[in-house]
Design a protein around this nucleic acid. Structure first.
Lengths: 186, 186
DNA sequence: GCATCGGGAGAACGACCGTTCTCCCGATCG
DNA sequence: CGATCGGGAGAACGGTCGTTCTCCCGATGC
């Protein structure tokens, strides 16, 4: 197994284990066993656990941004529908059997107070969601605060769906978002 | 120091340290040093760290429920104002200098996957917030889903305020809540 | 006054974790 | 073919953590 394949397998494995059990409950040995990548190779590719954690979060950040944009472009035309489509995307995510909440909310809760890099990545990720929503609301001519409010609904849905295990918050948030969007129409 | 005073000091100290650094980053020795309670006494009162964590969360659960109810009864009359007052209470909380997010969201992210007791306490706590909001919306004759939606706004505000460090989400969520409440008026 | 008890301080213990090291094998290249 | 290199498996190391144990002191009761 070459370095590139090892990196991919490590990121996949670490992301899955971190999502399931949190970061600190997963030892490097568990990642090695589950990935089949030797410890030597692991530390060649990611010289420390901190760097692996950050790499996992950064890749997830890019994945989510791309998926959201792609979903919006695919299923919706126009900013109104694209803003609402965010909540359909959430619904699909929440319905995945292994869903256990947003990795950024969860990891910030665990490490945000002691790992500034993690806190920064989480902050940037949440800002990117807000910015994506702001693109849509700006195009509608709605006031800027609407994007923040839609982001609150989305993040609240992630938190509550993670804790309760129910996918319903996506639909509830979508309905609320529609009310806010309609009320803000110029 | 007797057992009762030790328990109080331990809960206070542990809650503060857990909020600052997360649970797993805080050793029992740090709690002992910061609280001034000896290890022997600590393990007399809380026979394991797991039990201490659960006790901290359970006390916080009661504190928050009581504070929310008291705040609602004090500053507002009528269900409409009481529902909105929840977000004023959030604003005061977010403005505290040591605020670093909701303990239940944070601890669920860290331990929810490996500590079922923690997951249950977090779930119950979030359900109690929803139930409190449902009391208000029911009194207004609004459809039941409105309480869920207000809870999503509140939880989204907690998550975003924790991650960004800004208290603004409280006001943004309150404005959105007002729109939803007005739209649901029979 | 002396034996007893409970508690404080912190050392000690066993487990685990992140990281590094050792040993060995198989491939590559002259 | 023989030397060299890179990597795999896992042992080893240093540190930390949760938990327990030891030692000592002061208070209490007869």
């Amino acid at each position: 197994m070459d370095a590139e394949a090892a990196e991919l397998k490590l990121l996949d494995t670490a992301e899955r284990l971190f999502d399931e059990r949190g970061v600190q409950s997963v030892g490097m040995d568990a990642i090695r066993t589950a990935s089949g990548v030797s410890l030597k190779r692991l530390y060649q590719v990611f010289p420390s656990k901190d760097l692996l954690v950050e790499a996992v979060l950064r890749r997830r950040d890019e994945t989510v941004r791309a998926a959201l944009t792609a979903h919006g472009a695919r299923v919706a035309d126009g900013p109104y529908e694209r803003a609402l489509a965010v909540f359909d995307w959430l619904a699909g995510w929440f319905a995945e059997p292994e869903f256990r909440g947003c990795a950024f909310i969860n990891t910030f809760g665990e490490l945000g107070g002691v790992a500034p890099a993690v806190a920064t990545i989480a902050r940037d990720h949440k800002e990117s969601l807000r910015a994506y929503l702001a693109e849509q609301t700006d195009a509608l001519g709605a006031p800027p605060v609407l994007a923040d409010q839609l982001a609150l609904l989305a993040n609240g849905a992630m938190a509550v769906a993670g804790i309760t295990g129910s996918p319903e918050p996506a639909a509830q948030a979508k309905a609320a978002a529609r009310v806010l969007l309609d009320a803000a129409r110029p």
